[in-house]
Simulated assay, not measured.
Amino acid sequence: MNSGKSTQLIQAHFNYLERGMHPLAMTPAIDDRSGLGVISARVGLELKAEVFSDNCDLFEMVKARHAEQAIDVFIVDEAQFLTKEQVYQLARVVDEAGIPVIAYGLKIDFRAELFPGSYHLLCLADKVEELKSICWCGNKAHMNARVNADGQVARDGAQVEIGGNARYVSLCRKHYLAGRAFR
């Protein structure tokens, strides 16, 4: 969280457009924080995107779209919400359709456990790049803490709870384990 994933995604999409290419950007229907089909960055950038549900066959969808108009890259937002099957479908998009896939998402949840989509992406991805964020102490933040109404770090609950800056904070491991969300 707070590492610039959405900003980088929007920039990558723009770069393809600027070169006269045709990117396809999608985001999961479950993430409607900024509105359905809107990828929004904290720095104020937005991108209208198409949505997919967890029962969407991404390979078949991309293949059908590619038959109508060439797709030069398939960009997926919030990739942690992909199903195992969808991750394998993305591998087919690359291997069988020859279309590059760029997927942006979180690796772990607020309990420091891998999301299923992230797990399978880590298993199959040709390349993984980590975007960095900063803890309140200035160290690298790679933990996503969910905080309750009192500002305390939550340790249990449903894995998926869509929320923004008010519910989550990026922390270094030390402060995550200590439960210190703020100075």
Rank of each mutant, 00 (worst) to 15 (best):
R167D: 12
R65W: 00
N148G: 15
G20M: 02
H175K: 03
E50R: 11
A125H: 08
Q8W: 02
H175M: 06
D156N: 12
G4V: 09
I99N: 09
A154F: 02
R167Q: 12
C172V: 06
V43H: 08
P116F: 00
I10E: 03
R33H: 11
Q152T: 14
L90M: 15
A181R: 11
G164V: 01
A145P: 10
V101T: 02
I162D: 14
A64V: 04
R111S: 12
V101W: 07
S53M: 09
K84F: 05
H142P: 05
E161P: 01
I134F: 10
D126M: 11
R111F: 02
I102D: 09
K84D: 15
L24K: 07
M143Y: 13
E68R: 15
F14R: 10
F74P: 06
N2E: 11
A12R: 09
N55L: 05
L124A: 07
R183M: 12
A29S: 15
L171D: 05
P23I: 01
P116L: 06
G35L: 09
M21Y: 07
S170I: 01
H142C: 14
D32L: 03
F14S: 07
G105W: 00
I39Q: 06
A141S: 09
Q152I: 10
V76P: 06
E46M: 11
N148V: 06
A64G: 12
K63F: 10
D77E: 03
Y16Q: 10
L122V: 04
I30Q: 12
Q80E: 01
E68D: 13
L106R: 07
R111M: 11
V87N: 05
P116Y: 00
K140A: 13
A49M: 02
Q8G: 08
V160P: 04
I30A: 14
P100M: 05
D54E: 14
Y88R: 12
L106C: 08
I134R: 14
D126F: 06
A67K: 11
R92M: 07
A141F: 03
G37I: 03
L114S: 13
I108W: 00
L90G: 10
R167W: 00
G44S: 04
L121R: 07
V87M: 02
M1N: 13
K84G: 11
A158W: 00
A112Q: 12
D57H: 15
G157K: 02
V128H: 13
A154Y: 00
V101G: 13
I108N: 08
K140S: 14
G157S: 00
L122T: 06
A41R: 00
Q152Y: 03
Q11H: 10
E113L: 13
Y168L: 01
E18S: 14
L124W: 00
F52E: 09
R42K: 13
D156A: 10
Y88N: 15
I30R: 12
V87C: 14
K5Q: 06
